[in-house]
Simulated assay, not measured.
Amino acid sequence: MSTTVKDLNKWANAHTYFTLDLLRIALGVFLFFKGITFITNIQYLVDLISPIDKIGGGMFLIHYIAPAHMIGGIMIVFGLLTRWAIISQLPILIGAVIVNFMGELHTQNLIIAFLTLSLCVFFLFYGSGKHSADYFFKMQR
């Protein structure tokens, strides 16, 4: 497993581009502000997860989604433990895509959730790139 991550990091560092770093930063900023939106408007979040609230764990989801977006977004912006931050986002984003099919279909929300999920999957494999805290700390060894 660690050789696979090392190979992915070597490939990503050899093929790093400033635009990909800006895209990673934009993804992190988007997730951070989405977390702020959820905290400042809890009813909006409650309404979003209402189709799956029948399954249970609604209160857990409310207390997981906003902080995970905020903390994960900051970590993604700085490129600090990027893959771990993205792994914490994946269940939320997969749930966001599924919720659109379980409840009333909101095309705009579905597109945003799918694009964000796609970017997260990309950066899960790509990593944080050369202009990141992960790369900086790795070079300090």
Results as ranks from 00 to 15, higher is better:
residue 28 G to W: 01
residue 95 G to E: 05
residue 117 L to P: 00
residue 89 Q to E: 13
residue 70 M to R: 04
residue 64 Y to T: 12
residue 65 I to Q: 01
residue 15 H to N: 15
residue 121 V to S: 09
residue 105 L to H: 01
residue 132 S to M: 10
residue 45 L to N: 07
residue 132 S to F: 07
residue 130 K to Q: 11
residue 135 Y to Q: 11
residue 68 A to T: 15
residue 56 G to P: 01
residue 53 D to Y: 11
residue 104 E to H: 13
residue 55 I to S: 08
residue 77 V to K: 06
residue 87 I to Q: 00
residue 140 Q to E: 13
residue 126 Y to S: 02
residue 52 I to F: 10
residue 139 M to C: 11
residue 137 F to W: 10
residue 89 Q to G: 07
residue 34 K to I: 09
residue 93 L to W: 03
residue 38 F to H: 15
residue 133 A to T: 09
residue 38 F to W: 13
residue 26 A to R: 01
residue 17 Y to S: 13
residue 71 I to M: 09
residue 64 Y to W: 07
residue 131 H to L: 15
residue 75 M to F: 10
residue 83 R to W: 05
residue 131 H to Y: 15
residue 18 F to V: 14
residue 80 L to H: 02
residue 6 K to N: 14
residue 14 A to L: 14
residue 48 L to Q: 06
residue 5 V to R: 12
residue 54 K to C: 07
residue 139 M to I: 10
residue 88 S to K: 06
residue 129 G to T: 01
residue 125 F to N: 11
residue 108 Q to C: 00
residue 65 I to G: 00
residue 132 S to D: 05
residue 107 T to N: 09
residue 27 L to A: 12
residue 116 T to A: 08
residue 107 T to I: 14
residue 112 I to E: 09
residue 129 G to P: 03
residue 49 I to Y: 09
residue 83 R to E: 08
residue 96 A to K: 03
residue 118 S to T: 07
residue 136 F to I: 03
residue 8 L to A: 13
residue 90 L to V: 11
residue 26 A to F: 10
residue 32 F to Y: 06
residue 105 L to C: 01
residue 58 G to R: 01
residue 58 G to Q: 06
residue 109 N to G: 04
residue 80 L to F: 15
residue 85 A to W: 00
residue 9 N to E: 15
residue 13 N to A: 13
residue 3 T to Y: 10
residue 51 P to F: 12
residue 34 K to W: 09
residue 66 A to L: 03
residue 15 H to E: 11
residue 18 F to Y: 14
residue 139 M to L: 14
residue 67 P to D: 12
residue 139 M to D: 05
residue 69 H to R: 02
residue 32 F to L: 13
residue 78 F to E: 00
residue 99 V to E: 05
residue 111 I to K: 00
residue 75 M to K: 07
residue 64 Y to S: 12
residue 104 E to D: 14
residue 108 Q to Y: 11
residue 52 I to H: 04
residue 15 H to T: 12
residue 43 Q to E: 13
residue 81 L to M: 10
residue 53 D to H: 04
residue 14 A to Y: 02
residue 80 L to Q: 05
residue 71 I to L: 12
residue 132 S to L: 08
residue 124 L to A: 08
residue 128 S to E: 08
residue 130 K to Y: 10
residue 45 L to D: 06
residue 15 H to F: 06
residue 92 I to H: 02
residue 127 G to K: 04
residue 2 S to A: 13
residue 57 G to N: 01
residue 132 S to G: 04
residue 62 I to L: 14
residue 59 M to F: 05
residue 1 M to P: 04
residue 27 L to Q: 04
residue 77 V to S: 05
residue 124 L to V: 02
residue 88 S to Q: 11
residue 2 S to M: 11
residue 28 G to I: 04
residue 19 T to I: 12
residue 110 L to C: 06
residue 130 K to C: 12
residue 59 M to P: 00
residue 111 I to D: 07
residue 11 W to G: 04
residue 54 K to N: 12
residue 13 N to I: 03
residue 101 F to T: 02
residue 123 F to C: 08
residue 139 M to S: 15
residue 117 L to H: 02
residue 5 V to H: 04
residue 3 T to W: 10
residue 39 I to R: 08
residue 131 H to W: 15
residue 80 L to G: 03
residue 140 Q to N: 09
residue 120 C to E: 09
residue 100 N to Y: 05
residue 10 K to T: 00
residue 36 I to A: 11
residue 127 G to D: 06
residue 58 G to C: 06
